[in-house]
Nucleic acid binder design. Structure first.
Length: 220
DNA sequence: AACCAGGACGTGA
DNA sequence: TCACGTCATGGT
């Protein structure tokens, strides 16, 4: 298992190169090789908004929604919180679930303001409506640079196919396996970079080689 | 024309 | 805990 997790990471990196996630719209999208992002609280906030909006939805739709919010000058915590409900729903409509997501976004904006630029704990995030384990870890890893490996549906598919996890295995159980392998190999901020890249590579690979639930090609 | 996309949550068993 | 149903738009 240890070998497979590390080898797959290096294989994907070799095939696709650095992905430079999280894609930030207001700073010209991708920034491969530059791990300085996010540089400002507003950029961190934009990432968090993206993690909520992309739930069970295509990223292209999220880009449209974030662009809409930016046009309304509502991409900051305070301005998003102040935005009326109906224009907010209209702005994020392309991502679907706009009734719940509008509530989730403003709940989070309120929480983000109260943080005063401190780093939230995983439990604090999980206590918020609309933030489950994957979304919490996405925020922690990409917006707050904390070493939490993200387990999404692609991760389950790829690594269940490789025989080291079960499709309906508990989130924490799968995450532990990755943490156990990666932590001894990498340390400190390096581990954050690797977790960021690994998840991005998994998504990139899955986007290109999955059709529905069927795997068309495995890494090598 | 069904199927699914970088999920979360509520419900009844 | 487990298995389903619901939320909703947009692309293939």
């Amino acid at each position: 298992m240890c070998f497979i997790i590390l080898k797959t990471y290096h294989d994907l990196l070799k095939i696709y190169g650095k992905q430079g996630w999280w894609p930030l719209t207001e700073s010209n999208g991708y920034h491969p090789g530059n791990y300085g992002f996010p540089k400002t609280p507003n950029q961190s906030f934009e990432i968090c908004i993206g993690t909520i909006l992309t739930q069970n939805t295509n990223w292209k739709s999220v880009e449209v929604a974030i662009s809409n919010l930016n046009r309304l000058q509502s991409l900051t915590p305070a301005s998003l919180l102040a935005l009326e409900t109906s224009p907010l729903k209209e702005a994020i409509r392309p991502t679907g679930y706009f009734n719940q997501k509008s509530l989730y976004l403003q709940t989070f904006a309120d929480f983000f303001l109260a943080l005063k630029e401190q780093i939230p704990s995983r439990d604090e995030l999980l206590a918020l409506r609309g933030i489950g384990e994957e979304t919490a870890d996405s925020m922690l890893l990409y917006a707050f640079k904390q070493p939490f490996f993200i387990v999404d549906s692609y991760t389950r598919r790829i690594f269940s196919d490789l025989g080291i996890v079960e499709m309906k295995e508990r989130y924490n159980s799968i995450q532990k396996k990755f943490h156990a392998v990666m932590e001894p190999e990498f340390s400190g901020f390096k581990r954050v970079q690797v977790y960021q890249e690994y998840h991005a590579l998994i998504v990139q690979h899955a986007k290109l080689h999955f059709s529905g639930k069927r795997l068309k090609l495995l890494p090598r």
